[in-house]
Design a protein around this nucleic acid. Structure first.
Length: 842
RNA sequence: GCCGGAGUGGUGAAAUUGGCAGACGCGCCGGACUCAAAAUCCGGUGGGGCUUAAACCCCGUGGGGGUUCGAUUCCCCCCUCCGGCACCA
């Protein structure tokens, strides 16, 4: 290639064949770097107990669905970058990877294509592993786990048994999502807007016997401990708090005429007790169910209940717009006044919250008010605000005030009335203070094949019996029929079904339900420390040394389910004395989604950006760098193929600078050194950028870290173009720093550059650079001068100038004089090193 | 309805503690190189005014108000979008 007018090349001397210009050999760099990383075991932790300065950096392990796209890549690139930074900062970093390998898609593939789920899953794992490697995302593959592996799910089953022993796993009737087309239950997350995610049918509700984990026993702890999670995104903590849904109120009992059992209700407003004029129960309430069974419910009420139930079975997600109800003919007695209150059944009270029954206070609850107005039920006002009208007959008044119409409680302010009334009822044994949670127990059984079998047997004599630990794992059989019948495919394998009762050793039948895959993922982070351990699920010593996970990275879609379940399981294990920490994840980062054409990438939308072709064309580091540069990692971002080219151009320019410096042997005499001024300025600029990138990386602002590196390269080019051709020492130093800062972000390129710069060790183990405080020192500083808050001039003053010096310099400035017009400053604001503001009379 | 988050050029965005708004990239415009194109390199690029030009001035971070010498940043009201929860008693 002939010498061009390009100034930056002018100092390069004679070049044979010009291997450099315009060429950036990313394929060679990638191959070489990968070889080195694997050969030198740079990303493995050999001995968890011996490793110094441990740091556990974990990406949420993926479901092996098949191909990864650039959106998935963001997650792993981020995690890999963090792990690499921590390593350079002197930590032993544990960055393992595994597979959340049980789940429906594998089973669906089996139904549709006759591929066994295990084979389908294995194939996907292999493909995804290759993709992760292509990105340069390095994990400790010696620790790889897959939740579908018997050596793993043996311990998922063990976990089940432990919960069962402690009364935290139980079987009960529960409402589940049912897809009428696929003839199967669906997990909540497989129901999108009330429809089956696969066939789009409207999901029904069915009552079935199911297994539950008693997560509600930990509701209070799960809520309270959110305050320990200071390094979690506020958003996730709020979502969990809302999901747990604690509310304080009272549990009250209303006697029912002709019944011995009272009607129990939960209310957050016990102070409004005297305003209760009727009661409302849900259609599924036992009181109603019993009366229908006995045939003692009025015909129209029974018909209404039937209609409501059917509507909810058909689509439990439909929200009835209009409040509707029917009187049941049942009468409740007011616990204080003894007033006879009619009991209604209505669509606006649901069985799933509180007790499924309420006392209706139409004057002070808008929903009750609407209902009372529609059905002409009595309304009684029981408190008034200090100012204003209070209840006006047009809408409920829900504020606070002083009690009226409430017998001896009249005149009390609302908060006091609340306490006083509960106390009075408590004395009579018909009420007590109570905390109610929205959180419900975790339904963990699935009538599905591809999951960990629940380790229980049903004995005709002894009933439900746990499989002894010594017999684990209960292995999932290969020979099953996948056709969807609404029952577990495991029922089709007679061999599997046959079991011995662990108690009486008689013939028994094996439980055929499998566990929700969220059980698998609720403890996997413990297994990585000793993934091949055969005697236990995990080694407490190692786990206590490395956990809580220092940095957990994944999508915000797991904000509630996975992250709540994992917290729950860890608390259970803590109470069992098996771990010494209360929370599994110290620091959580939830990265944003990458969209294309404004939408989430999906095969059905046809907007998936696969990484393979991009890596082939531009190299892995270009894709990594662009992914990090696209925007703040916690925010969603739109993928732009043109933007990828910007990252590529940057790496090409950086690589050329490295080549130009290293093409000529170190001892070859070159042009004289650059004059001291520009060289000093250049060094300051470089070290300022080192400092900035340092901070950016600490704060996960990888987008601005990349921008900082671009500025470094721009500064290098300007430095050389500006006639400072001989500034070889400065150039070398800058490239040394830039290469180390680039190493976590574009590791292959940095590895090659590091070697070219004459280093023996991998850049992955090089120390994370620090800015040189001396280089940062300035002899002059630039001050912005404002007059009345508007920027009017910039002046240069000696570094560390005092206010008086700065003021003198500013007042000597022509532009400042123009705007002050000789008037003396009324006030002077001086921010050293930054700004001087003169306030003058206008 | 409630709870979170966001709104900045043509565009992705930046501005760490209230201190030069738009860094860095993309795109676009102009130029160099080329027979030509691509690639690469150089310069310009928020809007408006004024000017031959430079200089200079005004406006500008969803809208309105406020605090302050100074507000993208803090406070109040409103609008829009995104996410979560939802007859939650």
């Amino acid at each position: 290639m002939p010498e061009s007018g390009d100034k930056r090349r002018s100092g390069g001397g004679p070049t044979e064949e010009a291997p450099s210009a315009g060429r950036y050999p990313f394929r060679d760099l990638e191959a070489k770097a990968h070889r080195r990383w694997v050969e030198e075991h740079l990303f493995e932790i050999a001995d968890p107990m011996g490793a110094k300065n441990p740091f556990y950096c974990l990406n949420m392990f993926p479901y092996p669905s098949g191909d990864l796209h650039v959106g998935h890549g963001r997650n792993y690139i981020l995690g890999d970058a963090v792990a690499r930074v921590k390593r350079m900062q002197g930590h032993s970093v544990l960055a393992p990877m595994g597979w959340d390998a049980f789940g429906l898609p594998a089973e669906n593939a089996a139904i549709q294509n006759q591929v066994p789920p295990a084979a389908w899953t294995r194939r996907n794992i292999d493909r995804m592993k290759r993709q992760l490697h292509a990105w340069g995302a390095m994990f400790d593959w010696n620790r790889e786990i897959a939740s579908c592996d018997p050596s793993y799910y043996k311990w998922t089953q063990w976990l089940f048994l432990k919960l069962y022993e402690r009364g935290l796993a139980y079987r009960a009737k529960g409402a589940v999502n049912w897809c009428p087309t696929d003839q199967t239950v669906l997990a909540n997350e497989q129901v999108i807007d009330g429809r089956c995610e696969r066939c789009d049918s409207v999901v029904e509700t069915r009552e079935l016997e199911q297994w539950f984990f008693k997560i509600t026993a930990y509701a209070e702890a799960l809520l309270n401990d959110l305050s320990l999670l200071t390094e979690w995104p506020e958003k996730v903590r709020v979502m969990q708090a809302n999901w747990i849904g604690r509310s304080e109120g009272a549990h009250l009992e209303f006697a029912i005429e002709g019944e011995t059992a009272p009607l129990e209700i939960f209310t957050t407003r016990p102070d409004t007790l005297y305003g209760a004029t009727f009661m409302v129960v849900a259609a599924e309430h036992p009181l109603v169910t019993a009366r229908i069974a006995a045939g003692t419910l009025p015909k129209e009420a029974a018909a209404f209940v039937e209609r409501l139930k059917r509507a909810r079975v058909e689509n439990r997600f439909a929200v009835e717009a209009e409040k509707e109800g029917v009187a049941t003919g049942i009468t409740a007695l007011h616990p204080v006044t003894g007033a006879r209150l009619p009991v209604w059944v209505a669509n606006y009270v649901v069985m799933g919250y509180g007790t499924g029954a309420i006392m209706a206070v139409p004057a002070h609850d808008q929903r009750d008010f609407e209902f009372a107005t529609k059905y002409r039920l009595p309304i009684v006002e029981v408190y008034r605000p200090a100012e204003g009208a209070g209840f006006d007959g047009k809408a409920a008044f829900e504020g606070e005030g002083r009690m009226v119409n409430s017998a001896e409680f009249d005149g009390l302010p609302t908060p006091e009335a609340r306490k006083a009334i509960v106390a009075a009822l408590a004395k009579k044994g018909t009420g007590e203070h109570r905390v109610n949670f929205r959180l419900r127990d975790w339904l963990i059984s699935r009538q599905r094949y591809w999951g960990a079998p629940i380790p229980m047997v049903v004995c005709p004599k002894c009933g439900m019996q746990p499989v002894p630990e010594s017999e684990l794992p209960v292995v999932l059989p290969d020979q099953v029929t996948f056709k969807p019948t609404g029952e577990s495919p495991l029922l089709s394998n007679a061999e599997f079904l046959k079991a011995k009762c662990p108690k009486c050793h008689g013939e028994a039948r094996r439980e055929t339900d499998t566990m929700d895959t969220f059980v698998d993922s609720s403890w996997y982070f413990l297994r990585f420390l000793n993934p091949r351990l055969e005697s236990k699920a995990f080694e407490s010593d190692a786990v206590n040394r490395w956990l809580p996970v220092n940095q957990y990275i994944g999508g915000v879609e797991h904000a509630i389910l996975h992250l709540l379940y994992s917290r729950f399981i860890v608390k259970v294990l803590r109470d069992m004395g098996l771990v010494q920490f209360s929370e599994p994840f110290e620091r959580l980062f939830t990265q944003g989604m990458i969209t294309k054409d404004g939408h989430k990438m999906s095969k059905s939308k046809g907007n998936v950006v696969p990484p393979d072709a991009l890596i082939e064309r531009y190299g892995a580091d270009t894709v990594r760098l662009y992914t990090l540069f696209i925007g703040p990692p916690e925010k969603d971002a739109e993928w732009n193929d043109r933007g990828v080219e910007g990252a590529y151009r940057f790496l090409t320019r950086y690589w050329r600078l490295v080549e130009e410096l290293t093409e000529v042997p170190e001892d070859t005499p070159r042009k004289p050194f650059a004059p001291a001024g520009p060289a000093r300025q250049f060094r300051r600029r470089i070290h300022e950028l080192v400092e900035q990138i340092h901070d950016d990386v600490d704060r996960f602002h990888f987008n601005t870290a990349v921008s900082g590196l671009m500025q470094m390269v721009n500064a290098l080019q300007e430095f050389q173009a500006g006639g400072a051709v001989g500034g070889r020492a400065e150039t070398r130093e800058a490239l040394d720093l830039a290469t180390r800062l680039l190493a976590p972000l574009a590791p292959h390129t940095a590895e090659g550059a590091w070697e070219r710069l004459g280093n023996k060790n991998s850049v992955a183990t090089a120390p994370w650079p620090q800015a040189d405080p001396q280089a940062l020192q300035k002899d002059v500083e630039r001050l912005v001068v404002q007059v009345n808050g508007k920027v009017r001039a910039q002046i240069e003053v000696p570094a560390g100038a005092t206010q008086a010096q700065a003021l003198a310099a500013a007042q000597a400035d022509e532009k400042v004089q123009k705007f002050t017009q000789g008037r003396p400053p009324k006030k002077v604001i001086f921010v050293p090193g930054k700004l001087l503001n003169l306030v003058v009379e206008v």
